[in-house]
Design a protein around this nucleic acid. Structure first.
Lengths: 158, 158
DNA sequence: TATTGTTATACTCTATAACTATA
DNA sequence: TATAGTTATAGAGTATAACAATA
């Protein structure tokens, strides 16, 4: 019975990505749970907070979520009183989404918590290492979208 | 309607990790599907191929999978004829797992496919960047396991 | 009493097809 | 006809509790 396992797996970035992501997901969800949020609902709240008047379909594109799944995410946030849906006067099929006051406050609190979470999991990283990690991840994502007709909305550097 | 979305999200490594991992998972599953494997079942086959005689509980520890979920993964691989279960003579509660000939062949084929997949998604990466990415991911995982009583089995460097 | 493997089950996340109302 | 949002639903993936056989 080996105490350590050694397989071809360890040479594959996807294997380490899955393990690191599992850890991140568990920690982030534990962080957001007391705030009434999850990984995905925080992402949605974040986009609405930064882009008042965004439509659900734009949200879906930006976060690579299927439109049907956006609906129940928005429902959650609306029931909690953090966002509001209003008909777009220029296109009565669409809803425009905005944060309520409580939503903006929730977003501030949650973002601080997520910042702590991120710092916790990148403990020991230099600033250069933090930036390198994000850069490499973005390049992997871009490689994966090569040859796709619909490239997802990108988030630009500041 | 913004063409690009900019939120606090983009400063968090977990956000980029999720997006990169989604891309990897989709590509890897598409790669393995014609071979009758998935991300997890390939991992299991990989550990058994490299560690003949491993137990199910060791597999669970090594891959951070719950034991009940290992059962059906093993069932799949056994039905496909790639591994065999044999009673451990020294402990009749346990099964020891070994690859069949067909299983070793399947493992070789699949590993070549996974290598292609990995190279595809890290196109443009230097060797140093490949190694840096894996190193950073391992450090994130280690940060996440801090303070846990049960630290998962690690995979050593060669 | 503790451990290995097992069953059953539930919960989350994600994906697809089909509908409605507007354009 | 095409698009925005919606409904219902199905499929992964994962997690927990309880059990049988063995230690």
């Amino acid at each position: 019975m080996p105490d350590r396992i050694d397989t071809a797996l360890r040479q594959f970035s996807g294997y380490h990505m899955k393990r690191a992501f599992n850890v991140i997901q568990a920690d982030l969800n534990a962080t957001l749970k007391p705030l009434g949020l999850r990984m995905t609902s925080y992402s949605v709240l974040s986009v609405i907070a930064s882009h008042a008047g965004v439509r659900q379909s734009q949200l879906a594109d930006a976060l690579s979520i299927e439109r049907p799944n956006v609906v129940q995410l928005i429902d959650e946030l609306e029931v909690a009183g953090w966002i509001s849906r209003n008909r777009d006067p220029s296109d009565r099929r669409a809803w425009v989404l905005t944060c309520t006051l409580a939503g903006r406050e929730k977003y501030r609190t949650a973002t601080a918590a997520v910042q702590d979470h991120d710092a916790r999991l990148t403990t020991g990283f230099s600033l250069a290492e933090r930036e390198a990690l994000i850069g490499l991840l973005q390049r992997i994502e871009a490689n994966g979208h090569k040859g796709e007709d619909d490239v997802p909305v990108t988030i630009p550097k500041p």
